[in-house]
Design a protein around this nucleic acid. Structure first.
Lengths: 340, 340
DNA sequence: GTCACGAATGACAACGTTGTCAATTTGCGA
DNA sequence: TCGCAAATTGACAACGTTGTCATTCGTGAC
């Protein structure tokens, strides 16, 4: 005999199924005395409602999906933690769905997932959250969704989101480097498939322009968020006739690669070269020297996005919300060595 | 009108519900011609069976739970990936369940999870997988489970498992250091709540004994798998009158802390000090110098554990299986500097 | 004591699927 | 052509829950 059912509870408490149901769902219209009898029976039998049966009957869903395609474990774990926190609080389950953002039939895949598992909606992390075509398809399928995206301001494009101002954060880092006295500041791009990459670049560009520092194409290199990109990019920059005195990597992993390249070139960070990253991953704290970077409260952001999704499902008002990363100054940045 | 149901398919194909069900579940006893009509209808209506209804009726579950409490994102992501791979292949869903291994009512928590979400069973990662009391309780609740544990050999204790021979791996690393010529080899423990910690220590101890190298209590320090433990531990060891020429950290994070401490002390790794880690995390590749470590195929191990669980649920024979980590030699180890 | 009315409770159907078992059809030998 | 077993198909109940609606109960006014 498996777990107790509502039927067992009803029998034990000498009430009907429906009354037990009412107690469980706090519907009211149950006398205090009856309620207590039912609660005692639930306690005694260790009864827990079966989510399958419940969502089947009530046509409501009690789980949401978390969709991502991101190689960074720290990011993923933080997003999962945040989403789980919100889910647990709201009594929802969480179904994780790592997937290939370049897959050919992603919309169908997500729809199948949603229907098969009776998901109430989806939280989309970058870069899926930035595919307008995908968003439109999912919306056409009537799937509620909330995006986590990189944007300087509320996009007001009809798709609810939590947006992170990468541009502003990159601006802050660049401005900080400029204020330290740097003029030749290298920039290493992240992956182009993430919208945060151009956003971060725009922040860099804007700060350079605002402070009247000339942009030098030579100091700007493409990449894909990897350690190796940082290593190779830095090696190339440091080999220039007039190398940069500071390098801003689009994430901490790139910056870690830059640190390694600097060390290999015999340069002393931060005195010979300042290095800045982005993300505040443990890398940035444990590297030597520790990295100046930009802290995103990823867990909080994911939690908020999840809450937003659940509110939307409940038919509440849905207000997009923005988060600004904050500058974290550590040991990898210093004024440039005075020219001799 | 929501997603198509089996009823819609039946109507479209002009057959009974049951026949559609038979086609979906490959039960046979359906004429080829009928089968095709049904398949066409399924295709046209984009029908997907509802997992809630299915598991509700068939009393079978189509999802398993993955239970962990581990601060290491790389480990978690790898375990998730492996479990997901097996689940997808077998048509199962995966419910992740990070939890507090020291929680007071863990068994009840897991039972509730299992019942509420109709899970077919649980995959337990360390350290939950090592709590015999917990295992007994779950078994008493009739919850199928498979453990991922650290053990030198099949424990034959009645609880199915996939076991990883940490002891052997630690032996290999220690033996390698000894063969390089090291005699004073420091050992920094991992967290005591993980069985892999004493296992790794035993491997270290056995290698020292086998090679006739005296153990020195002074060189063996406790810790908890963290960067800071590595940093502090190394600082203490390096301050000894007769410091070690090599330090073996119980995981890569500890080893990264050791690297940082060595750098702070002005030592050149590997010439002044050899450092070895454990786990083959990206840390170990991206640190400077890159770390000699031990590679566990975590993803494969988790996939295998999941497969084992599903086989067990299907009532198949369940054979425990062992995995041996392999030694990965990189730049952080070298022969000791000859005494002057 | 009766009546009316709202609160409390219960009977029953339904959600989408599969298990059981009976009904129908098919194929094949006589 | 008929009979019969095997193959194919379908009717119906059931899984555990909640929605709908009817019924019963308790209470206060007359």
């Amino acid at each position: 005999m498996g777990p107790a059912t509502i039927r067992d509870v009803a029998k034990q408490a000498r009430v009907s199924l429906k009354t037990v149901s009412r107690v469980i769902n706090r519907e009211g219209s149950v006398r205090e005395q009856t309620r207590e009898r039912v609660l005692r029976a639930i306690e005694q039998l260790d009864y827990r409602p079966d989510l399958s049966a419940r969502s089947l009957r009530s046509a409501k869903a009690y789980a949401i999906g978390l969709v991502y395609d991101n190689p960074n474990p720290y990011y993923i774990i933080a997003v999962q933690q945040g989403a789980l926190a919100a889910c647990r609080e709201m009594g929802f389950g969480l179904q994780i769905h790592p997937c290939n953002s370049r897959g050919p039939r992603l919309a169908e895949e997500l729809r199948d997932l949603t229907h098969r598992s009776r998901l109430a909606g989806l939280v989309l992390a970058p870069p899926m959250s930035e595919r307008m075509a995908l968003l439109r398809e999912l919306t056409a399928y009537n799937i509620p969704l909330v995006r986590i995206i990189s944007a300087a301001e509320d996009p007001h494009d009809g798709f609810p989101c939590v947006f992170v101002d990468d541009r502003d954060a990159a601006y802050a880092i660049t401005a900080y480097l400029i204020q330290l006295g740097h003029v030749r500041i290298g920039f290493l791009w992240g992956g182009k498939q993430h919208r945060s990459s151009p956003e971060r670049y725009k922040g860099y560009e804007k700060a350079m322009q605002d402070y009247g520092v000339p942009l030098d194409e030579e100091l700007i290199l493409e990449g894909d968020f990897s350690f190796d990109d940082g290593f190779r990019g830095a090696r190339r920059l440091l080999g220039l006739p007039e190398p940069p005195t500071a390098i801003f990597g689009s994430n901490d992993e790139i910056a870690a690669g830059v640190l390694a390249a600097a060390r290999a070139a015999g340069l002393h960070v931060p005195y010979d070269l300042s290095v800045a990253g982005f993300e505040d991953s443990p890398f940035s704290r444990h590297s030597w020297p520790s990295l100046t970077t930009s802290r995103q409260r990823t867990e909080l952001i994911a939690e908020h996005a999840t809450r937003l999704l659940i509110a939307q499902i409940h038919g509440g008002d849905v207000e997009n919300e923005g988060f600004s990363p904050e500058l974290v100054v550590r040991g990898s940045t210093a004024p440039p060595r005075p020219k001799q």
